Amino acid sequence: MRIDIEDLHVAYAGRTVVAGAHLIAAEGEITGLVGPNGSGKSTLLRTVYRHLKPTAGRVLLDGADIGDIPPARSARHVAALPQERGGDFELTVREVVAMGRTPYKRAFAGEDATDRDVVARALADVGMAGHTARRFTELSGGERQRVLLARAFAQQPDVLVLDEPTNHLDIRHQVELLALLRTRRRTTLVSLHDLNAAASVCDRLHVLHGGRVVASGPPREVLQPALLAAVFGVRAAVAEHPLTGDPLIAFDHRSPVDGPDGAGIPMSAPSGVSGAGPGRSHR
């Protein structure tokens, strides 16, 4: 399935947070949202998984306005890993992951063999198969993150919406998660702070700044020093990763440029959304 975001505006608490965003998450591709804090990434994602309603514009799921799709039906197609985790679950790890099967169950229906297989596979995928009986409240931040990701996998969605999915994960589990996303090849819309991770995993990037999409395209085209200076306020050099060939961004931690204000965004940077073809192939 494909996600189209058309002229999206979102405002709350009297402030416009997303202003006229246009972007595409193409079927089977990993589409990344990057930008500084407060640029509107999480707000935009919340409209896709229906936590927020747009002020104007719309989110389309395979051409249908997602707001017109019954929630139980859309939950079979779109699964989310939000930044806000809600309250602590007084449930076991397995019970939390089994919640992902809810869209497929009638009221008061019990588990069947398919549910058990799906839950077991989701737990194995995130490396938590040996922790099924532990209480969710007893887990570390990284373990909770992996369990909630398994819950999203258990929904068997066509579209994954992931807001900073590598938060709290150590480097090994970050690498494993990104590799898993590449292997699954579901339509994925993901926000990432780590630009090198975004360059590695994403087919296409959309750069947000001040609530607007200011650049779009394959990572190699988008992540250029001029844009990094204008949007993020940092000096950086972009090279080729010696192991993967992906773009590798080296930041100057000693002398950042002036704070970003958006005025210096280079006109040569890819802007807008011009098609949704594959950005590149993964190794």
Rank of each mutant, 00 (worst) to 15 (best):
E6W: 01
L8I: 01
L8C: 02
H9R: 14
Y12V: 14
Y12F: 15
R15M: 11
T16S: 08
V18G: 05
G20L: 05
G20N: 04
I24A: 14
A25V: 06
G28A: 10
I30R: 13
V34H: 00
P36E: 07
G38A: 02
S39D: 05
T47M: 00
V48T: 02
L52E: 10
P54R: 11
A64D: 09
D65E: 11
I66Q: 13
G67C: 15
I69L: 03
P70S: 13
P70Q: 13
S74R: 14
R76F: 08
H77F: 03
A80C: 10
L81D: 08
L81A: 13
R85L: 15
R85C: 03
G86L: 10
G87D: 15
D88G: 13
R94P: 00
Y104L: 14
K105H: 12
A107D: 00
A107Y: 09
R116S: 15
R116E: 10
D117G: 11
L123Q: 09
D125P: 06
V126F: 04
G127F: 12
G127W: 12
A133K: 10
A133I: 10
E138N: 10
L148R: 07
R151V: 02
F153E: 07
Q156D: 12
V159F: 04
V161K: 10
P165N: 11
N167M: 12
H173A: 04
H173L: 08
L178F: 04
L178T: 07
R182V: 13
R182G: 07
R182Y: 12
T183I: 06
R184A: 13
L189R: 05
S200R: 12
C202W: 03
D203N: 15
H206V: 04
H206I: 04
G211Y: 02
R212C: 09
R212P: 02
V214N: 00
A215P: 08
P219S: 10
V222P: 00
L227G: 01
A230I: 01
V231E: 00
R235V: 00
R235D: 03
A237R: 15
A237M: 09
V238Y: 03
H241E: 15
T244F: 07
I249R: 00
H253S: 05
S255Y: 12
V257N: 07
G259N: 15
P260G: 03
I265C: 04
M267H: 07
A269D: 03
V273A: 03
A276S: 13
G279V: 01
R280N: 05
R280S: 05
S281I: 08
R283V: 09
R283C: 07
